[in-house]
């Protein structure tokens, strides 16, 4: 579950970077900018929310390493 969420954060960060790159590219057109901007704004909010919620899962292995 946590891995899935973490991956989603990674995906959202990647998508946000894509959008930012679009705004700085020659493909930028004002007609599409509002929709793209809204998506970026929503992603930033989601990333903040996800990162505030996510917890690490720490498992100390039962396996002993004191013998072969």
């Amino acid at each position: 579950m946590s891995e899935k969420n973490s991956e989603t954060v990674a995906n959202k960060l990647a998508r946000l970077s894509e959008l930012v790159a679009w705004f700085e590219s020659d493909d930028f057109v004002l007609e599409d900018a509002v929709a793209q901007f809204k998506e970026a704004q929503k992603l930033a909010e989601d990333i903040e929310h996800d990162l505030s919620e996510l917890k690490n899962e720490i498992v100390v292995l039962k396996k002993k390493f004191d013998e072969e």
Binding site: S2, N5, S6, K55, N56, I58, V59, V60, K63, F65
Partner: peptide
């Protein structure tokens, strides 16, 4: 562990106690 938890989340950590 404290710093890992403060900085980021969603990581599965397997710990080998040695």
């Amino acid at each position: 562990v404290r710093l890992l938890n403060e900085r980021w989340g969603g990581v599965h950590v397997d710990v080998a106690h040695v």
